[in-house]
Design a protein around this nucleic acid. Structure first.
Lengths: 204, 204
DNA sequence: ATATTAATACCGACCGGTCGGTCAATTATA
DNA sequence: TATAATTGACCGACCGGTCGGTATTAATAT
């Protein structure tokens, strides 16, 4: 009744995996659906059994990719209650681990930014919901900062602004590192940044 | 002998102005050369009398746009020798003034990022020389930080890493603000960031 | 002054190529 | 055999860039 070589979800995952490979190597614009199909070892038409459009494939590819870091983060966060340690972990995972594990894949994030901004005033903007993504992380850091202030570790700073700035710095460093990975050592820069940040917000 | 309605350079500027308007509204990919031509009130073919390709128009548009901030910056820097003040000015101009003056135009920067990254391994990469652009600003800040350390205002920090982080934060904040200008007040966030930064690097 | 010639600016119809998406035909499964 | 899954040839829209022709101006000739 339901003849199928593999499970429907499994096949979708396979397509996403192929898409991740191609998108990160060629970028959104230069990637052709036929590339994705061939990489996945299937016909082009098959993709459209699982996805509506190229945009949808791209958006789901990005989210698929982001799940990794989300899981890493949740796992790490569950192991400590110290706000200082949480900040360290957030930067370490978000910047160092993500890039070291899959540096070449990160340019997909740039594409997502670009497409997301481009889509701001179109109907596909819900696929590229950057705002929601940022809200999520901003809230996460905001809560950590609030905790720190409550417990007296941090100065009474504007937590939302600071959270925004932390995420901002991480994004920006990622950008610069992608442009020229030899310029600075990512781990070292991350540590310097964390130190400087804590220097600025810790109560003396 | 040289029949021409307006000066050749003037016309090129007019095209760039039109291009700036269209590129910032529609992004690189969605902008058609005919859009630029119509906005400039000329024929499509005429553009190719002044530029080699769409990529060249885009690259020159971006540089044209960046000159504004460069001039602002040089002017402001020439008025003080205080490293602390220079840092303030850099952030104020780079983040607040640039966005307040022409917020809607800034999405062109994202496109430039995206195209620049995409062009990394192609022959047009010299048109989208992001690396050089970043090097310029990084050096600028690096020098300011060195001065500050020499004169004893700043702690002995890694200046290159710190410079990278400062630029990174500014880029990232710009991104977030473009995504949602209502989320935070740019001026306030810039001030908070500057305060936090100085808190972290100033000698006590 | 006017006609003629020359040089250049300007234009937009057109071309070649590309690519996302469709669908009739084919293959695999039960 | 019936049904579901897969495929890739095909379609139509799109677009960057070209090129032959026209318009405009200036220089020169008469």
């Amino acid at each position: 009744m339901t003849p199928r070589v593999v499970d429907k979800d499994t096949k979708k995952q396979e397509i996403l995996l192929a898409a991740l490979e191609v998108f990160s190597r060629k970028g959104f614009a230069k990637t052709k659906m036929i590339d994705v199909a061939e990489t996945a070892g299937i016909g082009k038409g098959t993709i459209y059994e699982y996805f509506r459009s190229k945009e949808q494939v791209f958006a789901e590819t990005f989210h698929f990719f982001m799940q990794k870091s989300e899981l890493l983060l949740q796992d790490a966060f569950s192991k400590t209650d110290d706000p200082v340690e949480k900040l360290r972990i957030f930067i370490e995972i978000g910047l160092v681990q993500l890039l070291e594990d899959s540096g070449e894949f990160m340019s997909i994030t740039m594409d997502f930014w670009a497409e997301g901004i481009r889509a701001k005033s179109t109907k596909i903007m819900d696929l590229f919901n950057l705002k929601e993504l940022y809200d999520h992380y901003r809230t996460l850091i905001n809560d950590v900062l609030q905790e720190g202030i409550q417990s007296g570790v941090f100065k009474p700073i504007n937590t939302l602004n600071t959270a925004s700035a932390i995420i901002a710095a991480m994004d920006g460093l990622m950008l610069q590192w992608i442009l020229d990975p030899t310029l600075f050592d990512l781990k070292e820069v991350a540590e310097d940044f964390t130190t400087g940040l804590l220097n600025g917000i810790k109560r003396l």
